[in-house]
């Protein structure tokens, strides 16, 4: 087993030398999870706003679905998406299985409930008096809703970071629907940081696996630092 120190030094040298395999794996991870985020965030915000600020039939059912979805294991999401996209499945004709698009779809399914749930608790946490104060200063209905959402913006940011964190660090579903494919010239097609760690560990390449792990942690850590910095600045 390699020491942590040698893994760190190898990670450093891989990053500094702009190792093409590493870069392509990081690229796929960021693109897939970033795209999943771009799709999930507006959808989650809409659902959270509906659940938090409106009353409608089926609200409790939707809420239960969101809560359940927050805890679903990623392999199960992967399995369902796999069955839907496989050749004999209902969406098999689209030919999406083993593509980054399939990975984006499964990550969307995975993170939308999580982002919705965190956004919802942020909305519910906004002082009810804010809405009344908005009314008392001449806000229309829509302006009141927007004011409450704006008050919850730090919680929304936390939700986005949490969603991205879950997306980029999950293994099960991207492995199942992406197929962990690398082109013959050593550039990733559907291999992400997490699935690459699985492969390298299986191959006994512990140093490369650890190096990839360090890159993954650095990405997640810097995002969280950015978020807390924005929150500390307070006014935006």
């Amino acid at each position: 087993m390699p020491s942590l120190l040698s893994a760190v030094s190898q990670a450093f040298s891989m990053i500094v030398s702009l190792d093409s395999y590493l870069l392509s794996v990081v690229g796929v991870s960021l693109r897939v999870s970033g795209m999943a985020l771009v799709i999930s965030v507006p959808l989650s915000a809409l659902v959270a706003a509906l659940l938090g600020l409106a009353r409608f039939p089926g609200r409790n059912l939707l809420r239960t679905l969101v809560n359940t979805g927050m805890g679903v294991p990623s392999v199960i999401v992967g399995l369902v998406v796999l069955l839907l996209l496989s050749r004999s499945g209902p969406f098999g004709g689209l030919g999406l299985l083993w593509t980054p698009t399939a990975m984006v779809i499964s990550q969307c399914v995975l993170i939308t409930p999580l982002i919705t749930g965190v956004m919802l608790s942020a909305l519910v946490g906004v002082d009810r008096a804010i809405s009344e104060a908005a009314h008392a200063l001449g806000a229309s209905r829509l302006q009141r809703v927007l004011t409450v959402i704006r008050e919850a913006r730090f919680g929304f940011l936390t939700a986005v970071i949490a969603g991205f964190g879950r997306a980029i660090s999950e293994v099960g579903s991207v492995l199942l629907v992406g197929g962990n494919i690398v082109f013959p010239h050593g550039v990733s097609y559907t291999r992400t940081l997490t699935t690459a760690i699985v492969v390298e560990t299986r191959k006994g390449q512990f140093e490369t696996a650890l190096a990839l792990g360090i890159v993954l942690i650095v990405i997640v850590l810097s995002l969280n630092l950015l978020a807390s910095r924005l929150q500390r600045r307070g006014s935006w």
Binding site: D127, A129, I130, E132, A133, A134, A136, L137, G138, A139, S140, Q143, T147, R150, E151, F154, G234, S235
Partner: peptide
Amino acid sequence: AMVFQDPVLLNASVWENVAYGLFL
């Protein structure tokens, strides 16, 4: 316009708070 017993301010700067009603 109305002022309440306990001040209810937005989580923002003083300027943003005072400008709020005008922005609406």
